[in-house]
Design a protein around this nucleic acid. Sequence first.
DNA 1: CTTATACCTGTAACCGGTTACACACGGATG
DNA 2: CATCCGTGTGTAACCGGTTACAGGTATAAG
Lengths: 327, 327
Amino acid sequence: MTTIKDVAKQAGVSVATVSRVLNGNGYVHEDTRSKVEQSIRELNYTPNEVARSLYKRKSKLIGLLLPDIMNPYFPQLARGVEDEMQENDYRLIFGNSDEKKQKEMEYIQTFVQNNVVGVISSTNDPEADMYTGLNIPVVFLDRTSNDRPSVFADGREGGRIAAQEMMLRGSKEITVMQGPADVRPALERFEGAVEVLEERGAAYQVLKTTSFSLTDAEGFAYELFRQYPDTDGVIASNDIVASAVLKEAHRLEKRVPEDVQIIGFDDILLSSLLAPSLSTIHQPAYEMGRAAARLLIELIEGQHIERSSIEFPVEFMERQTTRKVES
Amino acid sequence: MTTIKDVAKQAGVSVATVSRVLNGNGYVHEDTRSKVEQSIRELNYTPNEVARSLYKRKSKLIGLLLPDIMNPYFPQLARGVEDEMQENDYRLIFGNSDEKKQKEMEYIQTFVQNNVVGVISSTNDPEADMYTGLNIPVVFLDRTSNDRPSVFADGREGGRIAAQEMMLRGSKEITVMQGPADVRPALERFEGAVEVLEERGAAYQVLKTTSFSLTDAEGFAYELFRQYPDTDGVIASNDIVASAVLKEAHRLEKRVPEDVQIIGFDDILLSSLLAPSLSTIHQPAYEMGRAAARLLIELIEGQHIERSSIEFPVEFMERQTTRKVES
DNA sequence: CTTATACCTGTAACCGGTTACACACGGATG
DNA sequence: CATCCGTGTGTAACCGGTTACAGGTATAAG
């Protein structure tokens, strides 16, 4: 590897001068500057970020922690974060937490050990010591925190909308699927839906689920129609689960949306491709990722922060698993 | 941040001794060891990986470069890589290349600047200088390279199988969609399919496509049935494109698989959830990711390497977009 | 009793950058 | 002519670890 010393020798100057050229600070004579730049080009030199990071005690690295990149919702967040970071010359150290505290801690620790300058995390416990004790900025993505920077969608409102649309379109026996209890956004959606149902005195049932994986989802879908064969409206905890419900409804030869309406959550790629296509609550995941990255960069670079919590609105995507509303 | 000096002072020894305890090498008296370990615990000390990396000229970081994490195929690869790396105490610096040489180069450069000890890349040009000039191990994932370590699925055979199954199930006017010409696996699938079609003297047409994104795919699907309204079998370049074709077929009120059969490629989550579910060529993406990570680790740790190229078999997943074959 | 050897520990150089500080030079100012 | 200041450059300390090397002690071997 070529080092700053090689460049200095080649250009006939000291390492300090090369460093000044590199960073564009201090005085450097124009002729010297060109000589150094030429040597840099000739030797194809790029500075070692590790050495820089050690002295300055900060790197150009960001830690990104998501529950599971295989869940189709998260790649959109990840890509939003990556694009924004890439454009601002930051790089990502990436890890999957599986919503497990242990893995989360391990990652946070190695983030710190590698001098990351900021962290973006989807955690269910923003108040955990591993976060409150960090002395670098953290942005919580897809998760709410009262007093710490976060970027999230209005899950409660999403749940409310889902329930309203369900009732508006004529479902009388609604089943609300409650996602994993320890996953915050899942809980909020659920609460939002139940709120509306209670307010209006509607009949509804709850089916608790414990995971978002497809194989598990198929089991929940089976269970749903076994326990509540007469349900005519299902508010699913996300689009994966909704897909499984749709598939099971087909298997039972129920007509969708005539016999049973289904509303999902997230609006992943899959949703628009299903037949019938899935009505769902859209979250602007890619934009949320970008926003989280922008916010983190502002925090890192110490600019004035307007709002340190950004809530994105959600939107009902009317597709084919809900009935048309007569106008 | 607490440093090794703080620990040394607290334990009343030199930094060298602390280092020895940390790394478990050299002689350390049992009593000293416990004292040091106690101080480490009390101060909640973890060594700075950046300093380590600088001296040893190697880190515990791996560079992972994928075309686009939003394409549903890649998260599976990524997760496979991540799981295997995580279990072996390596961390990932992750980037999306969008199949663009420029972005690829930028990432490779910052990988090097950060002292990564290995790289896993899905590139279309493994022979590019940026790879051949690297003096750290590189494993090419989902891409073939003759003489360099790589992990990939048998795309050509996949294409052959698709064509065979298509014909076996009675399609007479097959349309083969050719993926982006510069994406190697897409090309191989295409070539495999055409090979079989030629061998058997079957009638077929080719539709060239230039991207894998869903919006573009919908355009290609439209174009396909406009140009070849009589086609009764479509071999799509991947499952996303296949989904778009399926949707368009529905729109045109063609029956699937009676009027037109469709075979995709990849076997992403989506495929089994569509209605009718999508027949496709399965690639074991998650396992491929793990295998690439394992291979890279072996390369890094200098163990004996049995095979430096690993080809995974593909498999026809018979679902509902192909007709049953009479037995 | 001398010497070899295993065990234990500390000092200091080193990794590749950044930057505080010292110094030198030349023109402007009084 | 003395002083000051802007410009330009080099020396060396520093970041937080690792490790070569030296040196000291205790025990075993000759």
